[in-house]
Amino acid sequence: MPHRLNPFILATASKCIGCRACELACAAAHIEGGVSVGSLQAPLSPRLYLTCVGEMRVPVGCRHCEDAPCAAVCPNAAIYRTDRGVQVDESRCVGCKTCIVTCPVGAMEMGQIWENGKPVMRRVANDNSPEGSEMEPALLASKCDLCKDRAGGPACVEACPEQALALIYPDAIKRRRNIQAALALKGTGARAGEVL
């Protein structure tokens, strides 16, 4: 079947040990650098979030909603749907934060964007400065982009030592579950041909 629904990354809580390797890999995948933590040229800003509730640990991230509320509320059309998930165009983001409020799973954050080893800056009013304003690192909408430009696919999935994360295609899962359910049914009334 063709995939008509956006894939997304889902974690299995029972497998997650809470090591944050996914967050680390995610953050690293979205900034320039080499193979080591020290080589990364910007602060780490992960796009999925290890969440601890009691004994449970599980990373939570964007589901790439089909009717994405973040995209719907964005006043500047910075969030849009593509055939590779719901994506953010940081150049259009004005940092209004409405998307954070509206996301039902808490997948959106405001993060710094770094380009060429420097944070993207914005001008803010400051009466105390001589020019009446000053520059500070801009905080812009930041969320899972399914590592769209990464050759090996999503970094978090690759990094998880427990294989607790997977890029799932909901249509394929549905189809497989349908088949399993039908096969299971075969063992019920079908065996005896009885009428229940």
Partner: peptide
């Protein structure tokens, strides 16, 4: 519904 597909999964 916002189409997050968690129910499908």
């Amino acid at each position: 519904c916002c189409g997050c597909k968690a129910c499908m999964a």
